[in-house]
Write a protein that binds this DNA or RNA. Sequence first.
RNA 1: GACCCGUUCGUCUAUCGGUUAGGACUCCAGAUUUUCAUUCUGGCAAGAUGGGUUCGACUCCCAUACGGGUCGCCA
Length: 439
Amino acid sequence: MSDTVRTRFAPSPTGYLHVGGARTALFCWLYARKHGGQFVLRVEDTDEARNTEEAKQAIFDGLAWLGLDWDEGPAKGGDCGPYFQSERRAIYDRYFEKLVAADRVYESEGAWRFRFDRKPVTMHDLVCGEVTIDYRDESNTPDMVVRRSDGSYVFHFVNVVDDLEMKITHVIRGEDHLMNTPKHLQLIEALGGVAPAYAHIPLIQNANGSKMSKRDVGAAVGDYIGSGYTPSALVNYLALLGWSSKSEEEIFTMQELTERFSLEAVNRSPARFDAEKCAWVNQQHLLRMSAADFAASAREYVVKADLPVGENFAAAAAAVQEKVRLLSEVPEALRFLLVDEFPIEESAWEKIQANAQAGAILQAIHGALAGLGEWNADSAKAALSDAAASIGAKAGAMMFPLRVALSGKSGGPDLMVILALLGRERCLQRIETLQSKRG
RNA sequence: GACCCGUUCGUCUAUCGGUUAGGACUCCAGAUUUUCAUUCUGGCAAGAUGGGUUCGACUCCCAUACGGGUCGCCA
């Protein structure tokens, strides 16, 4: 099947995996998956001076975390290997000889330059449409070096040769490559190959509209790993940057994205990265997780924070599933349920101190809870109402002081749930503790 | 500077000549929750500017402005 879709992600291991690169990889992956094709990973490690082992690993780790598995590439193999350009020297030499034979290259100060055909070159980009660059203007398009004086080959040459050799049908890459495309088209023509289809996707910018650089927080996929984000959420948000489902839905699973994705729906203008919305998307994904999955994901963050995870951890986790935007917020949201030492929020403390009724309320609740026969949510609720009635207060007024006594917070899980999870003894103790702190 | 691409609420976007220009994030106000969160309802907020073409333009064309990209023996 010669018309099987084949896309590729071709990063160079000179830094971490950038969110822009991740999105490019995502679009390539989605396009291949959607059309039942193959997604190839090729490592462009021709710049020995700048390549690092860590960078290479960061790329693999980042893609794996995002769930962008490749059908061919490092650690996977395939019919078009090797998948590291540093190991494909013989192939490049062979192609280079074709250019020599066709008299399309000439030596210049030890390097070899490719002689462009001096004519207008038109590309039919799947996103940008028809774009023409006039190669008759030599000052703007000087013949390019394809082979350095040290014998190594430059990006344009190896990139084109590999796309040809690996039978790539769709090259989806960042818009920063748009002006390279006519060069690649010329090379392919000289080599007698068939050009793949091209799709140049808009770049991702910072919140202020500037270019997202390596120093920016959140620019690396690694920043999201282990910092509270779900891979599916980052993928979802990245997909929304420069692509639209054309519907009013925004939260998608990988499966749904695959079904809906199309290059025609990709925008042409650059998009800014909005951390707020990214966090919101994450919250939506957490909300949609099963309780068991959420507990499992939350668990590692809690363990990392040195908090104990007992038998009832699942129940505790369930209590905060819809209270957090990031998994990294879980430990603090859960601390009071796991240990007896917990801080009291300053603003909550001030409100308690300012509340003249607080002492009476806590005392009434203490009495009601202490005398409770059965300890469950319903009976606790009834007890609170009784306590309120006994001091002539509204039931709603009981909640805040009790919440602060039990959790030290002004917000958190449902109070009845907290009561049930903590158990009578701890609840009574905590109320007593707050009473004595109040002095 | 030259050459490309782009320009709808603060941000992400819908609209493919005729709409009260829709949705989402953020923010504000209510409702629900006897508490918290979720959720729901409502509100604030946009077609860069100037010319055309057309009965009619956010949509098509031109110019200007602004933004981004590219001009390496980096990828």
